[in-house]
């Protein structure tokens, strides 16, 4: 599973990388970078799902 970021929707709220630094970090402009390419353990999946839930821009999703 991979986390996908829709940069058109993302408005750089920062909620994903500040709430889940295990999985995201901020790039130079303010967009998130996904740190874990392939999500395969439960702990990381939990971070991903929580980040998707808190994203105010609805810009994150999980892809098989």
């Amino acid at each position: 599973m991979k986390v996908k970021i829709d940069k058109n929707k993302c408005y750089m709220s920062g909620e994903c990388y500040y709430n889940h630094p295990e999985l995201f970090k901020m790039d130079d402009e303010g967009y998130p970078i996904v740190l874990v390419d392939e999500i395969n353990d439960d702990a990381m999946k939990k971070h991903a799902l929580e980040a998707i839930e808190v994203c105010p821009a609805v810009a994150l999703s999980l892809e098989e």
């Binding site: 408005y11 750089m12 709220s13 920062g14 909620e15 990388y17 500040y18 901020m26 402009e29 303010g30």
Partner: peptide, 23 residues
Amino acid sequence: ENRSGRYKDGKNGHLGFGIGQHF
């Protein structure tokens, strides 16, 4: 305001809410 302190319009934001972890 964005917690990241960064904006798509390229303008600067005020710092009145802080930025980042303790925004």
